[in-house]
Structures are given as C-alpha cells and as structure tokens.
Amino acid sequence: MSRLAKIATPLVLGGAALLAGMHQWESQELTVYADKLAGGLPTYCSGRTFPPRPVGERLTRAQCDEVDAQTATEYGRAILACIPADRLDQNSFDAMTLFAINVGKAGACGSRAAQLLRAGQREAGCRALATGPDGRPVWSYAGGVFVRGLQNRRQYEANWCLTLAQESAP
C-alpha cells in the first residue's frame, strides 16, 4: 500500500498506545499533587490540571482511567483541529497528542512541529518535537532550566512520530 494510503487511514482518538504513552511519561497519580515543574499547579491522574482539584485529594484508579481517556480524546481533537488528518498517521497523531497533553493545546498547535506537519513535511515536523532548526533541544525547559527528563520525553515523541504506523492486514 502506498504511503499516502497509510496516512489517509482513519485515526483513533484515545487509543491504547496513546494511553500507554501517557502512563509511561506522566504516570497515573491517584493523589493530587503540586507539580514543581509547573510552578506548583495541582496535577492528577496522567498530568491533568483542569478542572482544578485540591492538593491531597485522592481519586480511584477507575476515576483516573476515565479522566485519562477524556484527556486523550480532548487533546487529540485539538490536534485534529490544527493539523489536517490527512497529514498524520496514527503514530504521528498519537505523538502530537502526547506532546499537547504536556505543553498545552496552544503550545502544540503553535509549535514549529505542527507548522511543518501542516505543510506536509512529516519527517521535519516529527524531528521538530525534540530539536530546533539548529539541533538544540526544544520544549525541554521548565522555568528556563533544561530538564533532561523533558528532553527524553521529546525524543520519545519524535521517535514515535517518525515511525510510520503499520496497517493491520484484513
């Protein structure tokens, strides 16, 4: 099948691979905590900050599973609103959604990565998740300080994005 046909495959919102990626990078925190990298913003489940919840509140695994599924769908829709679906395959879509969950919808949609993907420059767009035109890390700073864990996540997202999704045989 041609590359174009692979990219034109319908995308799955909030699929199992995306949820696994969320849990890998965000972990699933059942107790609301003040996220140091986000200036103390109350954070829960797999990185959710809105609607706000009081620090120390405890959620059940089932509640967080529901919150995470809603988050994945909500942020996936935001990506589809700023990058045409025919410019994405499942892996680039999931990687961009995971990126958006971390940097915000506006950050992801306004990013150089999104601009390149919209322009049909898939490989360059995927690479732009982790590095700038000069090869330096991007989206890997908190409070102006480089955070190795954020760069590791950006590399994961870029590599995931670069891997063309394989269609299942009928």
Rank of each mutant, 00 (worst) to 15 (best):
W139S: 02
V147P: 03
V138G: 07
V138Y: 13
R112A: 08
A128D: 06
N159T: 06
G132H: 11
Q121E: 15
Q121R: 15
Y141S: 01
G125K: 08
A165F: 12
N152R: 07
G149Y: 05
A119C: 03
D134R: 10
R112F: 04
A128R: 11
E157M: 09
L116I: 04
N152C: 00
R136L: 15
G125W: 14
Y141R: 07
N159G: 05
A113N: 04
G110Q: 11
A128Y: 11
C161K: 05
G120I: 06
G120Q: 13
Y156M: 02
Q151I: 01
G149D: 10
Q121G: 01
A142P: 02
R122G: 04
S140T: 03
L150T: 01
L116Q: 09
V138S: 12
N152E: 13
F146T: 00
R136W: 11
V147T: 04
T163K: 15
G125E: 13
A128V: 08
R154H: 06
V138F: 14
Q115P: 02
R118N: 09
L116Y: 06
E123T: 05
R112T: 10
A119T: 01
V138D: 10
T131M: 12
G110H: 13
W160N: 01
N159R: 15
A114R: 13
Q151C: 05
R112N: 09
G132K: 12
L116F: 08
N152A: 08
T131K: 13
Q121T: 00
G120Y: 14
C126T: 03
S111D: 08
R148D: 06
W139T: 00
P137N: 14
R136P: 00
A124Y: 11
E123I: 02
Q115H: 12
R153H: 04
E157S: 05
G120N: 11
L116S: 03
G132C: 08
G120S: 09
C161I: 02
Q155D: 09
A128S: 07
A165G: 01
L116G: 04
